[in-house]
Design a protein around this nucleic acid. Sequence first.
DNA 1: TTATCATTGTTTCATATCGAAACAATGATA
DNA 2: TATCATTGTTTCGATATGAAACAATGATAA
Lengths: 250, 250
Amino acid sequence: MKNSREPDFPDSFDYGQFLPALAIDCVIFGYSEDGLKILILGYKNTSYFSLPGGFIRKREAIDDAAKRILEERTGLKDIYLNQFYAFGNLERSDPELMKMIMENNGFTPSDDHWLLQRFVSLGYFALVNYKRVKPRPGFLSDSCRWYGIHELPELIFDHAKMVEQALEILRRDVYSKRIGENLLFEMFTMGELQKLYESILGEKLHRTGFHRKMMRSGLLKRLGKKKTGGAHRSPYLYSFRSDKPKHAIS
Amino acid sequence: MKNSREPDFPDSFDYGQFLPALAIDCVIFGYSEDGLKILILGYKNTSYFSLPGGFIRKREAIDDAAKRILEERTGLKDIYLNQFYAFGNLERSDPELMKMIMENNGFTPSDDHWLLQRFVSLGYFALVNYKRVKPRPGFLSDSCRWYGIHELPELIFDHAKMVEQALEILRRDVYSKRIGENLLFEMFTMGELQKLYESILGEKLHRTGFHRKMMRSGLLKRLGKKKTGGAHRSPYLYSFRSDKPKHAIS
DNA sequence: TTATCATTGTTTCATATCGAAACAATGATA
DNA sequence: TATCATTGTTTCGATATGAAACAATGATAA
């Protein structure tokens, strides 16, 4: 078993342990009061950014690989994961760019270096608790931080399209799955939940309609009251019902 | 360019032209009056069946590979295609079974034969016109025919799960995409369309509600009348509006 | 102690959708 | 000309949603 403290891909790394030509990229969503965010890696000595990604071991299920990659970058286990699309056109690969990124890290890869091959990438997205994450840069990257979904830096390859598509699926499923549970905390007020939904959907929602809709959806459970000071009526606390499936992937 | 009349995978075949460890499997839906069908291959001299599948060339987009595979089995181009999921757990591979299938075809593959490796498979589904298809068996298979979705033979690997999942997505999208266009003909009556939808959804639909819903969806266009003899009011003919996207994949 | 105020929870009303059923239209057949 | 099966349209009731009014409540200020 590999210790996640080792550098991920040193120069002498054994790429042979992975399935070739197949990668995983993750759109990791987090949320704070200023809105929905995504965890982005910055490559050392360059102005290039990318989604956290990785490869699949030869005897590893793809979902397990995605979980491992997520844990390597966030330190979190047991998070909401959703495989949403496989990206595999020819234009998405850019060996020149990857070579340049490697060179800026002191590597001089040959033209047939493993990392320069054409990859098909499986897109996963994850919903994580922003405050629990300990962002960890990986091999080739020296930054790992959150960016608001409207303030993303320019991403390599087709990663911007991946983000867009992940967001689309997230929006589609937002009223039918336990989205919000991993982005917020275990308990939250209806107002907090509404702000999260507005941030995901990119539009203002009507307060009373949202309240009814969420309660009728059967996803929520109402708990006791919240007393934390506020010069107004104290809101109830809510949580997601535990009898509904917690994750898209078990 | 490979001529599709060549046998697909003769013993001396150059597997090196493909991306390793990555496959494509296709759930090809067709429809006739007795219901929704799927195109299934039967392996020679065995009682095993599988979805039509294939591999991806090293310089070929995955969508193009799916189109090529579909054309090889059906003779059709320009069909409704939808990539719906990547299947990649470890249990899905069964080299013993594949070896047996090959042996029943007169091959004696070594244990490290290319076809016996672990594959991740990209699931696509297609909607085709049943009557236009010329089913063509491929390498290892000697039958290629339609099976009703409730009369499928036992499929290898996780192909039954693939069918199930494809059907789920088809059902989810049935009211928002131009489904029906490629399963029926260019023009159809509302009754014909309703029967198709009932077959897809697996339930009876209410006639008048269906009529309204389809017309309100904006997907349909009403044409002139149909006169073909019937001792009753002649139904209108309908088609899908051409200003909506025709395929899920361009 | 009391009035004020912001926010939350509930109710009401108009509108749109959908299932269900009634009703009207139509074209072949008897 | 009457009958009949099927299709298209309309209506009615139940339900969901947008919008707004109304009630409740807990801190703060007078």
